[in-house]
Design a protein around this nucleic acid. Sequence first.
DNA 1: AAAGAGATGGTCT
DNA 2: GACCATCTCTTTT
Length: 168
Amino acid sequence: MNKLVVVDQGSGAEVSARIVETEAYRSDDPASHSFNGPTPRSAVMFGPPGVLYVYLSYGIHSCANVVVGADGDGQAVLVRAVVPVDGLQTMRDRRAGRVDTDLANGPGKVCAALAIGLADNGTDLTAPTARIHIVDDGIPPPAHPLVGPRIGITKAIDTPWRFRTPSR
DNA sequence: AAAGAGATGGTCT
DNA sequence: GACCATCTCTTTT
């Protein structure tokens, strides 16, 4: 956590934001897309770490995950919320009518604000040529993140695998 | 301020 | 053909 997502917006423009809220999913977790083994959609979750997994939620919203764990594990971390760092005005324009605190405080909003879509599924975040990168700018993960149950799922509801950086 | 419902489409059975 | 790791708008206190 606390790392930066940097997205190349084309024409040299860049937008970046700090990850402040995540959820964990893995293959022994009934709520995970990887629970029943690899499918055409969830295949990238079983690939090597450092790859972006994007899926369409409720037919409307894109949600972004980062694959973690070893190749074949089927683990990923959902990016639930980010705080704008660079390109704040771009995000405001892209999500007109919202106050700043609502720009990217949900999985679908994160993708809307950062312009991440299904086309970005499978992006290798470690490749220099990738449009999207994860950057560690030296700020460490919070020592005591707020922990709670995950949101919007129907299985494994009592598994507290949502993490958020304290304060705001 | 809080609560309820509709939108909408890829994926899996 | 049913299910959803959601968001936004509308209606009701």
